[in-house]
Amino acid sequence: MLALVLGCLLVPAAVAGDPPPPPPAHGPPPPAWEQLTAAQRELLIAPIRDRWNSEPERRQNMLDHARRWQELTPEQRRRARHGRNRWEHMNPEQRAQTRVLFKAMREMTPEQRSALKAQWRQMTPEQRREWVERQRGEE
């Protein structure tokens, strides 16, 4: 779970330039962008255009996110996708714990984060819930 917290720093949200998932092993790979039909390009772009138009207050954030995504290495992008996938499969309690854990870790030195990671791995689910509640109480 802690790896997810760190990976969440890099989690993209439907950013232009994010490569599509790999093609099925049994068929030919999809063509390059320049070889897509206008309808295929529209299919790929429409969700981003819809978000852009429906959330004007988030446009700058979307642009900033796209710029940061382009600066990531392929390994950082892979880790970000992995973190996003883990997040999507968490239940509400796990997400709440992750948010609190992430917030606490942002204030820590690398040594403190390492110590917390080790401590977290040793905790039972009940101990983790208690830790999260204590952190919420300190806010």
Rank of each mutant, 00 (worst) to 15 (best):
H65S: 15
H65R: 15
A25C: 07
A46K: 09
P29E: 08
E130S: 02
L36N: 08
P23M: 00
H26F: 06
I48W: 06
M1S: 08
F102M: 14
M108K: 07
W69R: 13
L116E: 09
H26W: 10
T124M: 06
Q112M: 11
P20E: 04
V132Q: 05
L4D: 08
N91D: 15
A39K: 08
M1P: 09
R51V: 01
D64Q: 13
M90V: 05
R121Q: 13
M123F: 06
C8Y: 07
R78H: 03
P92G: 05
I48P: 00
Q40D: 12
Q127R: 09
P22V: 00
S54Y: 03
E71K: 15
R81C: 06
L10D: 14
D50E: 15
E133A: 13
L43D: 11
E126V: 06
W69L: 15
G137D: 07
S114F: 01
P12S: 04
R81W: 07
E75G: 06
P125M: 08
R81E: 06
K117A: 14
V132Y: 07
N85H: 11
E71H: 14
M108G: 08
R78M: 04
N61E: 14
E75F: 05
E107S: 13
V15S: 08
W52D: 02
L43A: 14
L6C: 03
W131L: 15
R68W: 11
A104N: 03
V5R: 11
K103M: 10
Q119C: 05
W131E: 04
R51F: 01
P56Q: 09
R84E: 14
L2T: 12
W33M: 14
W120R: 06
V15H: 03
R51Q: 02
P92E: 11
M1A: 12
V5G: 14
A115M: 11
P21E: 09
E55H: 14
P21N: 02
R136F: 04
T98L: 10
T124S: 14
R59H: 11
W33T: 12
P19C: 11
L9W: 14
V100T: 15
Q135L: 12
E133T: 10
M105D: 05
A96S: 14
Q122S: 14
W131N: 00
N85F: 05
N61I: 13
A104W: 04
P92V: 00
A118Q: 15
K103S: 07
R86V: 15
L43S: 10
K117R: 13
N91W: 01
L9H: 15
P29K: 01
M105F: 10
L116H: 09
T37R: 13
P28I: 02
R68D: 13
L44I: 01
Q135N: 09
P21Y: 00
R58F: 02
V5Q: 07
E133D: 12
Q97D: 13
